[in-house]
């Protein structure tokens, strides 16, 4: 399993980001990734990213600012609508399945 860090962003930095993190851990795990998720709100994203090493941001709230880290709209993880697309987007950024 290849360890990766993902920043999950939602309005209060708690509930929906935790849901997204849970789903990403499960789904990306099937592709060989060991997901270490950090949850935050859009206003605390900059501080959270300062820890470094994040491969992508999974957003269930709009994040307009560019932090130089690829962003994925992760709302589909909650609705089930386009869940596969969210995972595909993540895998594209990560460079496909981990060895």
């Amino acid at each position: 399993m290849k360890p990766i860090k993902i920043l999950c962003v939602c309005g209060s930095g708690t509930v929906s980001s935790a849901m997204a993190a849970q789903k990403l851990t499960e789904k990306l795990g099937e592709h060989g990734y060991e997901v270490h998720a950090t949850e935050c709100s859009p206003t605390s994203a900059e501080t959270a990213l300062a820890a470094g090493g994040f491969s992508l941001m999974a957003c269930v709230s709009p994040v307009y600012q560019d932090f130089g880290i690829p962003k994925v709209n992760a709302v589909g993880l909650l609705t089930g609508f386009g869940e596969d697309k969210v995972i595909e987007d993540c895998l594209q950024i990560l460079g496909g399945d981990a060895e």
Binding site: S12, V15, S61, T79
Partner: peptide, 24 residues
Amino acid sequence: EREVDYPTGLQLNTYGVAMPHTAG
């Protein structure tokens, strides 16, 4: 207050729902 900036409506495959919530 949260709902204004970060709405919680979700259009599911079946119909729409909302999951209002806030900080612990």
